[in-house]
Amino acid sequence: MIATNESVEVLEQVDHVGTMIVQSECAHAYHYARKTLAEDNEAQSLIREFGELKVIYEEVQRFGHYHPDYKKVMGEMRDLKRALDTQTSIARYKKCEDELQQLLTDVAQAFGGAVSDHIKIPTGNPFFDNMSSCSGGCGSGGSCGCS
């Protein structure tokens, strides 16, 4: 691509939007929640325990119901996942992460929509990613409007 005055100006404006996002309340909340999570010893202990159990869980998943520890490991995994989800700093971090992701998705959709309604914007949600437009071969007989 040959750099033109117009492309340089567009890139400068994109940098400006990036700076606005980094300085947003949402981004500050995310960084604060991430820092708080990193300093929370209880949460870090749960995360380490989850990582260790995940290795065992994946081994059990290879054999499914036939593995002798299937029920035990599945129960432990559910309990630990519940403990992770209800731990305050982890829940706050996940909430802030989701809000920042939504902000980035909204910005990407605004940019894409300003160019064309047919531009596919990855949202991180397969339901909405597939709704925007079909690239063909969806098997619905064309009822989705694809060609």
Rank of each mutant, 00 (worst) to 15 (best):
H118L: 02
P126D: 13
N130A: 14
L103S: 01
N125P: 08
M131Y: 04
D106C: 07
G139C: 14
G113I: 06
C138N: 01
I121M: 06
Y93C: 02
I121Y: 11
C138L: 10
E99S: 06
K120I: 14
A108K: 08
K95M: 10
G137N: 12
H118A: 05
S116F: 00
G112C: 04
S135V: 03
C134L: 14
A91N: 00
I121D: 05
S133L: 10
T105P: 02
R92L: 08
S132I: 07
R92A: 08
D129I: 15
P126L: 07
Q101Y: 12
L103Y: 00
A114R: 11
F127W: 10
N125C: 12
N130P: 03
C96A: 04
R92H: 15
E97Y: 15
E99P: 01
C134H: 08
S133A: 05
D117V: 07
C138A: 00
D117R: 15
D106K: 09
D129V: 15
N130G: 15
A108N: 06
H118M: 05
N125T: 08
Y93T: 10
C96P: 05
S135E: 10
G112K: 03
E99M: 00
I90L: 15
A114E: 14
F111P: 03
I90P: 02
D106G: 09
G112V: 03
Q102G: 01
V107M: 12
F128Q: 15
G136H: 05
S89I: 03
C134K: 01
K94P: 06
Q101T: 10
P122Q: 09
V115I: 13
A110K: 04
P126W: 11
A114L: 13
S132L: 12
G112F: 07
S132D: 14
F127S: 13
H118R: 15
C138K: 12
L103C: 00
G137Q: 06
Q101P: 00
G124T: 05
G112P: 06
T105N: 02
I119H: 01
F128D: 11
G137H: 10
S116C: 01
G112H: 08
V107Q: 03
T123W: 04
C96H: 15
D106A: 11
H118S: 08
D106H: 10
S116A: 07
A108I: 02
G124Q: 12
I121W: 01
T123A: 06
L103A: 11
L103K: 01
Q102I: 05
K94M: 04
T88L: 12
R92V: 06
G113C: 05
C96V: 04
K94C: 06
K94D: 14
K95Y: 03
A114V: 09
G112I: 09
F127M: 15
P122S: 08
L103N: 02
G139M: 09
G139E: 00
S89G: 05
G139K: 04
A110M: 14
D117W: 11
S133M: 09
S133I: 14
M131E: 07
S140C: 12
C134F: 05
K120A: 04
G137C: 11
S133F: 13
E99Q: 14
S132T: 11
Q101E: 11
K120Q: 04
K95E: 12
T88M: 14
S132A: 14
R92N: 13
A108T: 05
V107E: 06
D117P: 11
G113H: 06
I119W: 00
C134W: 02
